[in-house]
């Protein structure tokens, strides 16, 4: 077939509706602009403002009626004071570090819990696998908040777990479990497990069986094959899962609020307190912007690594 003939079907469409192509590109950008960039710019502006006992509770307020001078004084009133406040008060840095700590430990726990699950799923008979995937996603059928409340009834002093332990005579008085680091980890690992299992499973079930046979053929027992072949090949899935979990865990609010205590104050809770309890919108906004910038770092790192492995696989 000659080249022009191959071209013709695509051309008239594009030529007849050039605007439709633009529209297709425009829609997602418009969406991103309206619901991501614009709110973000507002938050950035807020973070550069000062608290005021007023409605809205900050100044300066953008006032077009004041004309050019108004705009000048508006920009003149913006400052980085809130960011300085963030770094000078150990409350913010402390809760930020605590968030990172909890997110990091939870992500490792999640990997440890998800890897055997995903591996078992990928080794199950092909015909079972769709059912197993549905089983992993089944908890989503119940609202998130209700599932966390359920953990309260399990972990509290007169909860199910303590009842069980008492009944089995493993302990002779109730163990305090709620309002602890442990309870927060249980809640997080429980809630995020599907987000870790599914990407790892997706990678594992793509691994060619003949690679595992080749490893066995070359003298590698099964458990060793897992570490030498399966695990390295599952790496992109692990990275994706870690990223998907780590970032929202850093900003997690409900789980530490319901299952944790004052020592497990995470950045999300601090943010909430600033916004709603202290009504210090500017500091809260500065906190949000700083958090976002900090989280960009792991995103960029993982993207880099994934590009490399994707390039390697083509």
């Amino acid at each position: 077939m000659s080249a022009p003939a191959a071209d013709t079907p695509a051309r008239p469409l594009a030529a007849a509706h050039p605007w439709s192509n633009w529209l297709i590109i425009l829609v997602p950008y418009l969406w991103l602009f309206l619901f991501l960039l614009l709110p973000f710019l507002i938050v950035v502006k807020l973070s550069l403002s000062q608290t005021a006992v007023a409605q809205p509770p900050y100044s300066p307020v953008f006032d077009l009626a004041a004309g050019f001078a108004g705009i000048r004084s508006f920009f003149g009133a913006l400052s980085l004071d809130n960011y300085r406040a963030l770094f000078s008060d150990s409350l913010y840095i402390g809760s930020f570090l605590k968030s990172l700590e909890i997110a990091l430990i939870s992500t490792l726990l999640l990997i440890a819990a998800a890897l055997p699950v995903a591996y078992g799923m990928s080794r199950a008979p092909r015909s079972w696998q769709p059912a197993l995937v549905i089983a992993v996603m089944l908890p989503f059928w119940t609202a998130f908040l209700i599932r966390i409340y359920a953990w309260i009834t399990i972990l509290q002093r007169e909860g199910l777990l303590n009842d069980l332990l008492l009944a089995l005579r493993i302990v002779d008085q109730p163990v305090p479990m709620l309002a602890s680091d442990g309870a927060v980890y249980v809640g997080i690992v429980y809630s995020y497990l599907p987000f870790m299992v599914l990407p790892i499973y997706a990678v594992l079930c793509k691994i060619d069986d003949s690679l595992l046979e080749a490893a066995a053929d070359l003298g590698c027992p099964r458990w060793k094959t897992f570490w030498l072949v399966t695990f390295p090949l599952a790496w992109p899935g692990l990275a994706a899962g870690a990223l998907i979990c780590f970032i929202p865990i850093v900003g997690e609010f409900i789980i530490p609020d319901l299952l944790g205590n004052s020592r497990t104050q995470m950045i999300g809770q601090t943010l909430w307190t600033e916004f709603f309890a202290n009504r210090d919108w500017p500091v809260a906004s500065a906190l949000a912007v700083a958090l976002l910038c900090a989280l960009l770092i792991p995103i960029v790192i993982v993207q880099r690594m994934q590009n490399e492995t994707l390039g390697a696989r083509r």
Binding site: A214, A215, D217, V229, A312, R313
Partner: peptide, 11 residues
Amino acid sequence: MMFQSYALFPH
């Protein structure tokens, strides 16, 4: 064994 698909370890 040399596999029909070669089964080289991609990593």
